[in-house]
Design a binder for these strands. Structure first.
Length: 589
RNA sequence: GCCCCUGUAGCUCAGUGGAUAGAGCAACCGCCUUCUAAGCGGCAGGCCGAGGGUUCGAGUCCCCCCAGGGGCGCCA
């Protein structure tokens, strides 16, 4: 369970007498803790050590209360009393601030807490007052965070695998901003390796082909059509002037073209990067070699043909003329085997610049770092963490979100993807097919841990029967009400919120869960919680909309005013959630 | 062989060790003189992969099987 204690001292429920929307559970945890102490002081509970933190959760039975705590059941052993008795003692001694209606015990030992109706209704005003930043928390105030994601090398168009990466990363970035962090979204890339050389040579071949020359693609070249179109553009722009240029020139052109594509594709699904970080800069400023030196000074480096402790079998596999590689003694930090940092060719593996890159991130002073990686990079992530540790950096600010692979299914068959062979489903195709919002929601609404099977046929077919529209329609319907209201001159000025009924109250209570959802999504690196919560909220909205009309013959004017006020808050919250998810909040559909 | 992830409604998936396991889609029965029906109401649908254990309490934690995906490079 999420630990509420102590973390949110600065989050307030009241501010200058005005009610304030914020995280409620930490306040309740404190309240119950105080109640336990008071009960002990009064002799209603025996002496025992107070629990580290008092658990408070949303109630599984809303009719019994908004929140519940199972703390009494956990204390039963230490207190040597029946859970229900303990719960009753705690409830009896609980303070009753005015945002709480009642605290009561229920079998088998729950303590149920119900928020006061008046306070809940007043949150409507607080939401409206907060506006588009509603439910912003201050956990990250004054702190900086960085999210690194996508980080695909510019060798081809983005595929749906990259899309999942970007959606997870950008949503986490949005979340961090809502929590008060100053956030930077960064894209890390490599434009120097073998891949890029092959890319340059492939484009060169395509260019010469476009000039009518019979030139083959290089061995292992990039076969995708996309380079043909880049080549065509080069002919349009430069004619045959580039025919004697070296492949490096073509590499530059290819890279430029790929980044234009990549940025445009990402922009279509609302991902905009603040910074692009070139791996090569880590070589240019020497930091790669500095990391190696530091590791060596601390005794984490050795040079050998095979790793220490290698079996005879592994030794035998090495060719007789094999040269030494540089090894990172990561086993000293719990790894299963040592890792190569510099190949026998003298070229570093990816691990080394990756460590240097993370050193750079930490040196830039970020308080909180997120790195979004496919699960195939798990070893890499661990090696980086151990590398940082080895040279004296604390890796705890670095958080890695590992997501399982995306497989695409079309016509009942899996489509295997390869950038090299030019076989892939690009993000653009997907967005063309089903739209940016559907892509974002469909991918976001899955735990990163779940293997994502994207059935293209299903996505196309059900493009209209989608939770996306259900959620967006809630916003649209609010907008519609206000269009009508403006026409008829109905306003929500001076609304008396106490005129709102049970449905509306239940809906407002649900809206007030938002800060908890944001915090949980952040704490667990689980952006999909946002997607599910938005759907839950919409599930409450639509039935209400159906029943709770604003402008209808038999609705008294003062009731209409109150309802309108509530819908104003609802619209703000739906817009907030959609924006956090990187989706649009349309006025009409 | 070793490691990681997954297994929950017909399908796609949620589910903080807490109360009677939930959504969407699909299916079935109804509802448009209404702030747009991309909606609402109703009806179904489950040995939470199997088995053991820990616990006052297990879909959730542990062990062991079974099935699917991924990883175990001097690839990136």
């Amino acid at each position: 369970m999420l630990q509420w204690r102590g973390v949110f001292a600065s989050n307030r429920l009241f501010c200058r007498g005005v009610l304030f929307v914020n995280l409620i559970p930490p306040h309740l945890a404190t309240l119950l803790r105080d109640a336990i102490q008071r009960a002990q002081a009064a002799g209603d509970l025996p002496e025992f050590d107070l629990p580290e933190s008092v658990p408070v959760q949303r109630s599984g039975k809303p009719e019994l209360g908004d929140f519940a705590s199972p703390v009494a059941m956990q204390l039963a052993k230490a207190a040597r009393r029946k859970p229900l008795d303990i719960a009753q003692a705690i409830a009896r001694h609980a303070a009753a601030p005015d945002y709480i209606d009642r605290v009561e015990a229920a079998p088998p030992g729950f303590i149920n807490i119900r928020l006061s109706d008046a306070w809940v209704l007043n949150q409507i005003e607080a939401i409206i007052a907060a506006g588009e930043d509603v439910f912003a928390l201050d956990i990250g105030r004054g702190k900086t965070a960085q999210v690194e994601c996508v980080s695909a090398n510019p060798t081809g168009p983005l595929t749906v695998g990259h899309t999942r990466n970007g959606i997870i990363g950008s949503t986490m970035a949005n979340l961090l901003r809502a929590l008060g962090y100053d956030v930077q979204l960064e894209y890390y890339f490599n434009n120097a390796g073998r891949q890029m050389r092959v890319l340059g040579q492939s484009l060169q071949a395509r260019y010469l082909q476009a000039l009518g020359r019979d030139v083959p693609l290089p061995e292992d070249g990039y076969q995708g059509e996309y380079l043909v179109s880049v080549a065509r553009q080069l002919v349009t722009d430069h004619g045959d002037a580039l025919q004697d240029e070296p492949w490096e020139r073509f590499k530059d052109e290819a890279e430029k073209a790929m980044f234009v594509w990549i940025e445009r594709s990402l922009g279509r699904i609302n991902i905009r990067f603040d910074t692009f970080f070139n791996e090569n800069s880590l070589y240019e400023n020497g930091s790669v070699w500095r990391v190696l030196d530091q590791l060596e000074e601390r005794g984490y480096i050795y040079r050998a043909i095979v790793r220490e402790g290698a079996s005879e079998e592994e030794r035998a596999k090495m060719p007789p003329d094999a040269k030494e590689a540089v090894w990172f003694r990561s086993t000293a930090l719990g790894d299963e085997e040592d890792r190569v940092l510099v190949k026998s060719s003298g070229e570093p593996t990816y691990a080394l610049p990756d460590i240097a890159y993370h050193v750079d991130k930490l040196e830039r002073g970020f308080d909180y770092l997120i790195n979004v990686l496919g699960t195939d990079h798990i070893i890499e992530a661990q090696t980086v963490a151990r590398g940082l540790q080895a040279i004296g950096y604390d890796p705890t600010p670095v958080h890695v979100v590992l997501y399982q692979f995306v497989t695409l299914v079309e016509g009942g068959e899996q489509r295997k993807m390869s950038t090299r062979r030019g076989e892939f489903v690009t993000q653009d195709e997907l967005v063309d097919d089903v739209g940016a919002d559907v892509v974002r929601y469909f991918i976001l609404a899955r735990s990163p841990n779940s293997h994502l099977e994207f059935d293209l046929d299903l996505a196309r077919q059900h493009a209209n029967e989608n939770p996306v529209y259900y959620i967006q329609n809630a916003h649209v319907r609010c907008a519609g009400i206000f269009r009508q209201a403006a026409e008829r001159g109905v306003t929500d000025d001076g609304a008396d919120l106490s005129l709102l009924g049970e449905r509306e109250r239940a809906f407002v209570r649900k809206m007030l869960e938002t800060p908890e959802v944001l915090l949980q999504a952040y704490d667990e690196l689980a952006p999909h919680k946002l997607a599910f919560y938005a759907l839950e909220l919409a599930r409450l909205f639509h039935p209400m909309y159906d029943e709770v009309r604003v402008m209808h013959g038999d609705v008294p004017e003062d009731v209409a005013r109150a309802r309108l006020r509530m819908y104003r808050a609802a619209q703000i919250v739906f817009r907030r959630l959609l924006t956090l998810m990187g989706m649009s909040a349309p006025e009409v559909m």
